[in-house]
Amino acid sequence: MKFAIALAAAAIAVVFAIRADAVEEAPDAALQLVEIEQQTPYLESYNSTIAVGNTTQSIIRRQGNSGGVVFSSQAYAQFENHNADGSRATFPVEVEEGALYGISIQFVKAPTHGIVQVAVDGRPLGQPVDLYAPALQRAEPVNVGTLALAEGKHTFTFTVTAKNEAATNYFAGIDLVILDTQAAVQPTPTAVATAEVGGEVPPTLSLTLDGTVGFDAFQPGVAREYTASTDAKVTSTAGDAMLSIADTGANPGHLVNGAYSLQQPLHARAGNSGDFFPLRAAPLRLYAYSAPVSGHSVPLQFRQAIGGNEPLRTGRYAKTLTFTLTTTNP
């Protein structure tokens, strides 16, 4: 949900408005099932010539149905790793469509299996999964996390990090990787509030705008830069966050008064120094957080230049601006 701040000036009036923006439509669902044993494991521990049972090296091999247990496409990838050394099995996976995916892994459990950490393109995803079971079995899919994956070739790495005391070896079994946009946890994208509303914020991201924003009255025939400011208070539990501002109204970036608009764009900046940037329809990224913050106060400053010969129409020049606090790492 988005709210908005209205920034206006004419007869001094500045009005905060509330506007509920529609939630962006979800993209078309994409689902891709990856039979991991059918991917050439060309990155790690691949050696077709090593005999099964060799205790000094690890191999990956295709293992068919066994003991009455049926696997997806009749087989799974068995990572035969005898060592407590963090050996990795990596598979290239061609993602057919770039999207935000919920990633689920259908593992295979067995008495010989250890505890496995999944990583995609080298970044760990989710918590380690214990693949020990007293008997061979196909496990239910485990949702290990949500990742935005570009179309193209990625690496899926399975690292045996440890083993259950009951497990007799450091093997792992992977049957299927499920990439499903509908299983993706959508990032908590926005939390925006007006000064008047305050308080009504999601638990992980909050943005509050303090005080009244007001320019002095615009005076015709006087070339001048008008300034106004307010403070944003940001609380974020996300790993990173970005405070942005956008003007999605008519004649983006310009204050309007009915059919009239100011010639020069409204500018904004975060902080009390540095450059002002012109507003526009696309989000202008004002401030980046690389760590969680609580109640961090960010000065927001606005600047409007009016030329000496610029015609001004009686009334209120105003615009509703949308501030957003977003994260890709909730």
Binding site: R123, L147, A150, R285, A288
Partner: peptide, 21 residues
């Protein structure tokens, strides 16, 4: 400065995925 990356002048187009693999 306490304004990391604040000088981005434009909202760059987006692409899908983590870029620093």
């Amino acid at each position: 400065s306490q304004w990391p990356f604040a000088r981005a002048r434009t909202a760059p187009p987006r692409f899908v995925g983590y870029p620093f693999t």
